[in-house]
């Protein structure tokens, strides 16, 4: 009887500790990092080995789930061609807008150093949109490094182990980025919509407008989470007319395809020390490291 009571007391104690963990993690998201690092270094080698061992299973699954590989390859080749064309035109737009705003010295993706990594796993849960890459601390990857695919912003490194890192994609519901439109230079905020593979944009100026297919670039914000002028995506539908809606949101097509994401580049860039990392779902609305009131 006593033993049973003691076990129950221990269990209730564990539940209380768990509640404290939830609160501590909310208040200070980095407080549990030492524990996370230890766990990461314990699990990381096993996960790597499991990925290698189970590769035939995942390859087989890929083959089963793809109806017609030849069609898929043809479609991808076509998409690749179209994307290359879009990329050239977007680069041109970026160059034009840089010139217009006297930002000739603005950095572009190719100006950054950084390792190329392979995406080895998708989100382990349905409630986060992230990928795991096969490069980690040993390759110079650090927390906060932006991750790109070609010229397109993919996300940022959130957790890093010796040989792998977790990248929170810009599609994640907790991802909020300040943007500037490529042509009109109007500023706004983008939030992820989860694994639906879409983004939602909102312009700060209620009178501003965005045109279809207009590129969206990361904003030049002091102490921002991303370097300026990285391509986020394009306007997928025009926002409602000014005065026509209280919230003038619009869909944004990300510049990368989550389903075909295989290789990414981790940029050797970290936010400045003054950058305030947004508390996940915290009370203060932070956009790209900047407090919005």
């Amino acid at each position: 009887m006593n033993r049973e009571r003691r076990r129950r007391t221990w269990f209730l104690g564990a539940l209380v500790i768990l509640l404290i963990v939830v609160m501590v993690d909310r208040r200070s998201p980095t407080a549990l990092d030492p524990v996370r690092n230890v766990l990461g270094s314990v699990f990381s080698p096993t996960e790597g080995a499991l990925r290698v061992v189970t590769k035939p299973v995942s390859n087989l699954w890929d083959n089963i789930s793809s109806n017609d590989l030849r069609d898929q390859i043809d479609e991808l080749e076509l998409q690749n061609e179209q994307l290359n064309e879009e990329l050239s035109s977007l680069r041109e737009s970026v160059a034009q807008s840089n010139a217009l705003t006297h930002l000739d010295d603005a950095l572009v993706v190719s100006d950054f150093e950084g390792p190329i990594a392979r995406v080895v796993a998708g989100s382990p849960s349905n409630f986060e949109t992230s990928v795991i890459i096969d490069k980690g601390e040993d390759d110079g990857v650090g927390i906060g490094n932006p991750v790109v695919s070609g010229a397109a912003l993919v996300g940022r490194v959130e957790r890093v182990g010796p040989n792998q890192a977790t990248v929170r994609l810009i599609l994640d519901r907790d991802s909020t980025i300040g943007f500037r439109l490529g042509r009109s230079r109007e500023a706004g905020v983008i939030t992820g919509l989860g694994s639906e593979g879409q983004l939602r944009g909102e312009l700060i100026d209620p009178e501003a407008d965005a045109t279809l297919d207009e590129p969206l670039l990361t904003r030049d914000v002091e102490s921002g989470l991303y370097p300026p002028n990285l391509l986020i995506g394009t306007v997928a539908d025009e926002p409602p007319q000014p005065g026509g809606a209280v919230v003038r949101e619009f869909d944004v097509e990300p510049a990368f395809d989550l389903h075909t994401l295989e290789f990414v580049r981790v940029l050797d860039w970290v936010p400045s020390e003054e950058t305030v990392f947004p508390p996940v779902g915290g009370e203060e609305p932070l956009v790209d490291g900047v407090l919005i009131r």
Partner: peptide
């Protein structure tokens, strides 16, 4: 808790729901 700590969501919430 182990899974929570390795994921990007708040730690402890998943552990409580599983419990």
């Amino acid at each position: 808790l182990a899974f929570d700590l390795l994921s990007l969501r708040p730690a402890g919430v998943g552990a409580l729901s599983l419990c």
